[in-house]
């Protein structure tokens, strides 16, 4: 089972905010099994989706080199269940960004109505974890592309968020290269 809890980014402003969407489907086993008779996306997976949105926003500030992990879920408020057929819009904003981590505010909305509000703290693991690779770089880059991060990613100044060279190099070395995907901005 893949651990992807967002479908794609629709907005990504480096080091500032990101918006991702997650479409809830009755074809997802956990949606059906969580509360028998009342299919819904478990709130814990909404937290995970917000954490993936925020984690990638934080990770991009390190050119995706930093080992960013979710360290703490602070305040978390859920207002209503999220049902099959709904399109959840996850908005995350960086509140504080330091060398050792970040505090991120996350919000889940459906058709403009707030479904959940969550505060997340991420740690950027220090040199004690040097050599620990959380993701295989080429596969990670594929994931970032699949999430449309580089399609919508912009810096605060409005320039495209570029694919870091070290990920491009890893992709080339992996033999998984796809010429359509190797331009600097996508």
């Amino acid at each position: 089972m893949r651990w992807f809890w967002i479908d794609r980014f629709v907005e990504f402003t480096a080091a500032t905010r990101a918006v991702a969407v997650k479409c809830v489907s009755l074809s997802e086993p956990h949606v059906v099994d969580y509360v028998p008779g009342l299919p819904q996306l478990p709130n814990s997976l909404i937290v995970e989706g917000l954490a993936q949105t925020g984690g990638l926003l934080v990770s991009q500030t390190t050119d995706f080199r930093g080992r960013v992990v979710l360290a703490k879920v602070g305040q978390a408020t859920f207002h209503a269940p999220s049902l099959p057929g709904e399109r959840l819009v996850y908005t995350v904003e960086i509140q504080s960004l330091q060398g050792e981590g970040a505090v991120v505010a996350g919000r889940c909305e459906v058709d403009g109505a707030v479904r959940a509000e969550v505060e997340l703290t991420f740690a950027i693991l220090d040199d004690r974890f040097a050599g620990v690779e959380l993701f295989e770089p080429a596969a990670f880059l594929r994931l970032l592309r699949s999430l449309h991060l580089f399609h919508v990613g912009r810096t605060v100044a409005g320039d495209p968020v570029l694919v870091p060279e070290h990920l491009v190099a890893a992709e080339r070395a992996s033999g998984l290269i796809d010429d359509r995907n190797v331009s600097a901005s996508t």
């Binding site: 703490k72 509140q95 504080s96 330091q98 060398g99 050792e100 505090v103 703290t121």
Partner: peptide, 21 residues
Amino acid sequence: SIDFLDIVFKLEKAFNIQIPR
């Protein structure tokens, strides 16, 4: 240790100050 990041952020916000680590 990770809580201090959160605490510093909350203090900065509550008092409108900057806290160098």
